[in-house]
Design a protein around this nucleic acid. Structure first.
Lengths: 224, 224
DNA sequence: TGTACATCAGTGAACGCGCGTTCACTGATGTAC
DNA sequence: TGTACATCAGTGAACGCGCGTTCACTGATGTAC
């Protein structure tokens, strides 16, 4: 657990209430459900348990969420927000070289490393951020995809990092076009394989190597 | 459903038995459980339903599998085998240019495309191949990881494709070292994002573009 | 300022579900003599 | 070749589990007059 962890997510609300009306139940439920996701991934997001932790009957949740899926969806969005926060934090705290081009490269690497770090230090939230909810593509356009198209969240941070590479002349505009998806794929893939997949049991050192060589390969592919 | 689909996986065994002893129950259960995984992913692998489809009591399964997890694990291995078969099939059926270096490149691309195609045409099996079973890293070294270290299955095919790049002089031995993991990451990531993730709802054409540009980026990173 | 009443946000009990798993059992098989 | 018996591979009934969800309800709130 790191300093980037939001305080409101770690604080465990005591399950005692003074007033009959909670006043902020939807947020409280989302918060506790997110804590469940952090502890055990999407499978652990149990409506009844979230209500229990808030100190409210399970039925009360239905005043604020139509069904369990809606609560899980809120948690999923929160997990994406946390991921983006981690990447933002990494950008702010990374020391950069003076050379603008080198600085842009270091920023892209920092963003990628933060993505993988989030997957490994917050596996429950990472898995929840990318979990399936209901049949995929049910509503044609997912809000998540729309969000990505508006370049917000983790995707937006990646987009800006790539733009900075173009601005500093490290990356040509032709190579830049559409490059966010391949880069995202590489970073997401290594995060997934190291966190959940067949590489999860490797020693830390080797996993760091794999992460770094993946980022270097992507960078070389961009700037070659 | 394509021709690479194994016959024994599609044939639905009628749930009638003549003999009291089945004779091959472990395999029959694995086969039906794999069919369930194909239809609905790892969550759909239900021991009781597999037994029902074989035409046997649920209890009978416990003569062959210690618990549900053991059955799911067998299905997971089968799914990995199917993935590898798809990639092998792609290698065999891809037309290659005369130039050996170009041929090696085309083989790598074919292997990557087959990986993504499997994810998209057999999402249930793909998700099962990479699903979590029990606490990760429970037994220190997972059999799956060991298999990968022996370069069998999909990983082995990737390793050979990279070796061929070296043999034909397209890839330097220095660049070759440890390259399987970054390349695998890129391919796995794009498969995941397109199949399950935020990019799943994109039109087919755009998804093909993303797949191809990812493979090209990886190749450029290798050979730059 | 006080009161009536619609509305909102909670409650507790209950239901059905289908799963994984266990139990005591029985039918089939194969080997020793 | 026949028989006794250990062993293997099935059976059906039952259990507990905890979930999501519904029901008819009640306590709190705020607004019209």
């Amino acid at each position: 657990m790191t300093d980037m962890t939001k305080a409101h997510l770690t604080r465990r609300t005591p399950a005692v209430r003074t007033r009959y009306h909670h006043g902020d139940l939807a947020n409280a439920l989302t918060r506790e459900a997110t804590a469940l996701a952090r502890e055990g991934g999407p499978e652990a997001v149990v409506l009844r348990e979230a209500a229990r932790r808030v100190g409210v009957s399970a039925t009360a949740a239905y005043r604020h969420f139509a069904a369990h899926d809606e609560l899980l969806y809120a948690v999923k969005m929160q997990a994406h927000e946390d991921l983006a926060d981690t990447m933002d934090e990494a950008l702010r705290t990374t020391e950069l070289p003076d050379d603008p081009g080198q600085a842009a490269i270091q920023r892209l690497l920092a963003v990628g490393r933060a993505y993988v770090r989030f997957a490994l230090t917050e596996p429950g939230l990472f898995r929840t951020a990318f979990c399936r909810i209901a049949p995929a593509c049910a509503g044609q356009e997912s809000p998540l995809l729309e969000a990505f198209c508006e370049n917000v969240g983790s995707f937006g941070i990646l987009v800006k990092a790539l733009d900075a590479l173009v601005a500093t002349g490290v990356l040509t505009p032709e190579r830049r076009a559409g490059a966010e998806f391949p880069v995202w794929s590489g970073v997401h893939g290594v995060a997934q394989l190291l966190q959940d997949g067949p590489l999860a049991c490797l020693p830390t050192e080797q996993r760091d190597d794999i992460r770094d060589s993946t980022l270097r390969l992507l960078l070389r592919g961009l700037t070659a």
